[in-house]
Design a protein around this nucleic acid. Structure first.
Lengths: 215, 215
DNA sequence: TAGATTGTTAATCGATTAACAATC
DNA sequence: TAGATTGTTAATCGATTAACAATC
């Protein structure tokens, strides 16, 4: 695993997938090359920021030419770690868990959903979108046997806290947390939170301030 | 509508709902007061940041005492604009849209889901969790008649772009965008993006860098 | 009153933007 | 070669943290 010199800020990580998305669209549109200037106009950010961000990972461009779209797309894919398959399970086979399970885009990006888990015996044994629903007591063994790296938690907050505690003693490397709570896990496990209730509150705030008389 | 003196940065808005969540939990635990110092330990941020953030909106604390939990909870609720009901529709009655529709927490926070919309005639006329699924040609009139403020877009990206174009000529104030694309709307409409595919890529990156030999 | 803790100013740190020499 | 555009250093801007006087 290559050594990375400087610490990459989360602000940059936040932007990388967006670059990746735009590059994917350029690629689909058969665009071969793009300069940081043109790319900045397309994305609504400064050219300086694009060049600074990319140069944290290497010099992917060429003076007088710009960036090769296909090459840059692949490089960013590698940086993001999506140049390989990640095995994923979803814990909680409610509406949300099933929505994630049915979402083909993840599979396309290399996130392979291997199973759903639920404590409801009515659900266990059924399949959803071709993905089996397993009982909770299979969790540990399934993770080990199938080299699961990522667990998406789509359960109520109390269950999420309990599950985080169970998961910390497995080989799980990342938790994709949809529960409305923060999780306390060791440093070796990465948590990515998707707090939808916080998201809609921000929307509410911004609506209010946009319509109010904010200077 | 009160005038707000200084511009509030999105970094602060990002944090406000989290304060609100923790205050709600303290309230449930019957905690009356909390100092910025104790709150900072609980939340894992600096006391300075908490005081700075809050003082953008007013002096809610009291020297020698700290903050009154109930009062601060209510104040932040007001700041976020969730002291009143927001009428919401969900456009796209797929797995995701139905997951949102079935999610009782939003209702609890004052986000009242008034209808689902879908172009699929098979779905139209049915109800989901007590919420009716309406045809697309009812969109405009429904928004006007029911004072809908927020439209959640849970449709593929091409539809999302088309819909944003339609919504800009209605009374919609905010779009909660779950489609994998940016939306081009007038300044008067606020867009809050939930790009799950970007979220899982960040998780992938952070897993990689946590396990790699990053300094 | 004495102690605690805020509100706020000042200092520091980090992220963004600007500028330009290097170079394709 | 001349023009374009990068990679990178320097300047600016904004956000976070520290410090402390004000005050409950």
């Amino acid at each position: 695993m290559e050594t990375q010199e400087k610490k990459i800020s989360q602000a940059i990580i936040q932007r990388l997938p967006r670059y990746y998305r735009y590059l994917g669209e350029l690629l689909s549109a058969d665009v071969d090359r793009i300069s940081s200037g043109d790319f900045s106009k397309l994305m609504g950010v400064t050219a300086s920021q694009i060049r600074q961000d990319l140069n944290n990972f290497g010099g992917f461009g060429q003076q007088g030419y710009g960036y090769n779209v296909k090459n840059l797309y692949e490089e960013i894919g590698r940086i993001l770690g999506i140049d390989r398959v990640h095995n994923v399970i979803i814990i909680g086979a409610g509406n949300f868990g099933r929505a994630l399970a049915g979402y083909s885009d993840f599979e396309k990006r290399g996130f392979s959903i291997k199973a759903l888990f639920d404590k409801d015996e009515q659900k266990v044994g059924k399949t959803f979108g071709g993905i089996q629903i397993l009982p909770m007591d299979r969790l540990r063994s399934f993770i080990e046997e199938n080299q699961i790296e990522i667990a998406a938690l789509t359960v109520p907050k109390h269950s999420a806290i309990e599950l985080a505690d169970i998961l910390k003693d497995t080989g799980i490397k990342g938790i994709w947390n949809f529960a409305h709570t923060d999780l306390d896990v060791p440093d070796s496990i990465v948590v990515e939170n998707v707090h939808l209730s916080e998201s809609i509150m921000r929307l509410s705030y911004n609506i209010k301030s946009r319509n109010g008389s904010v200077k």
